[in-house]
C-alpha cells in the first residue's frame, strides 16, 4: 500500500513519515501533496497563539477533549523555535496536551521552525493537508506569538485565536501588532489568577474594528486547567467557521 493510501486509512506512522519528509525534503513531496489535495476536502484550521505562560497548551488540551467528545478527529501542530546558533530545538508543548491514555483520534506533532521564514509556512500548510488526509476534522496550529515567522504561520489558519492572561495588560502594547490585527477570537485565560479589567480595556482599544467584514472579534474568558469557558470558546470557533463558509 502506498504511503498516501495508508495515511488516508488513518495510519499514524505513515502520517508521521510524510510530515517528516515535508520538513526535510519539501520538493520531493510535491507529488504526494498533489495527490492528497485531490482526495481531500480542506480541513478547518485553528491557529492558537499568544505569549509564553498564558496556558495555550492546556487550552488546546481542553479543546481536544471537547472535539473528541463530539467524536471529531483532531490534529495538532505545535511549533517551537529552533536555536539560531545550533539549529537544535526543544519541543515540550505535548506535555500539557496529552490525554492520560493515547487516543487514535488525536495526532500531535511538534515542529521546529528551522529558521526558515517562508519555508515554515509552506511546511505547515502541507502538514495540515497530511493531517487532513489522515482524517482530522480540525487541525490546531500552535505558536508563540512573537516574531515574523509566527505571524506568517498564523496566516495559514482559518480561525486565529489569540490567548492572553491577567498580568499581561501592559505587555499587549508591545506585542506584534500583526498578531493583534489578525486575531478572530481573543481568549483571556487563567481569569482566576488576577484582575482582568485592565487587560480587557487594553484589548478593546487595540482590537481591530472588523465590523464591516461582518465579524466582531470576541473576547472569551477561560480557566483552561479547570475546563471552564471551553464550551463557549468551542461555540465561538464554530460560529467563525460558519461565518467563513457563508462568506465564500
Amino acid at each position: 500500500m502506498s504511503l498516501i493510501e495508508k495515511i488516508l486509512q488513518g495510519d499514524h506512522k505513515a502520517t508521521a513519515k510524510l510530515i517528516s519528509k515535508i520538513e526535510d525534503e519539501p520538493t520531493s513531496t510535491l507529488k504526494e501533496i498533489k495527490v492528497l489535495e485531490e482526495r481531500i476536502v480542506p480541513v478547518h484550521t485553528l491557529g492558537i497563539t499568544g505569549p509564553p505562560g498564558v496556558g495555550k497548551s492546556t487550552l488546546i488540551a481542553r479543546l481536544i477533549e471537547h472535539y473528541r467528545e463530539k467524536n471529531k478527529k483532531v490534529g495538532v501542530l505545535a511549533i517551537d523555535p529552533s536555536s539560531p546558533f545550533t539549529g537544535g530545538a526543544l519541543l515540550g508543548d505535548r506535555i500539557r496536551m496529552q490525554m492520560p491514555s493515547p487516543d487514535e483520534g488525536v495526532f500531535i506533532r511538534s515542529m521546529a521552525t528551522r529558521g526558515q521564514l517562508g519555508g515554515l509556512s509552506r511546511a505547515t500548510n502541507n502538514a495540515i493537508k497530511v493531517l487532513s488526509g489522515w482524517g482530522a476534522d480540525i487541525v490546531i496550529v500552535e505558536t508563540v506569538g512573537a516574531g515574523q515567522a509566527e505571524v506568517e504561520v498564523m496566516r495559514v489558519a482559518d480561525t486565529i485565536v489569540l490567548v492572553l492572561s491577567p498580568g499581561l495588560g501592559d505587555d499587549i502594547q508591545m506585542m506584534k501588532a500583526g498578531i493583534l490585527e489578525i486575531g478572530d477570537i481573543f481568549v483571556i485565560n487563567k481569569i482566576d489568577q488576577g484582575e482582568t479589567g485592565h487587560l480587557e480595556r487594553n484589548l478593546e482599544l487595540v482590537r481591530p474594528g472588523r465590523e464591516k467584514e461582518g465579524w466582531v472579534p470576541a473576547i472569551i474568558k477561560t480557566i483552561a486547567i479547570k475546563g471552564s469557558g471551553i464550551d463557549e470558546l468551542y461555540k465561538k470557533i464554530e460560529k467563525h467557521r460558519k461565518y467563513l463558509k457563508n462568506k465564500k
Partner: peptide, 27 residues
Amino acid sequence: RDAGMEVIYTGIRQTTEQIVNTAIQED
C-alpha cells in the same frame, strides 16, 4: 538540543502507551 538535535521532552509520569504514541507521531 545544544548539539543541534530536535528534542521532544515528554515530562514526567508517562505511561508506556503515551511514550510509544509520541515516538510514532513525532517520527
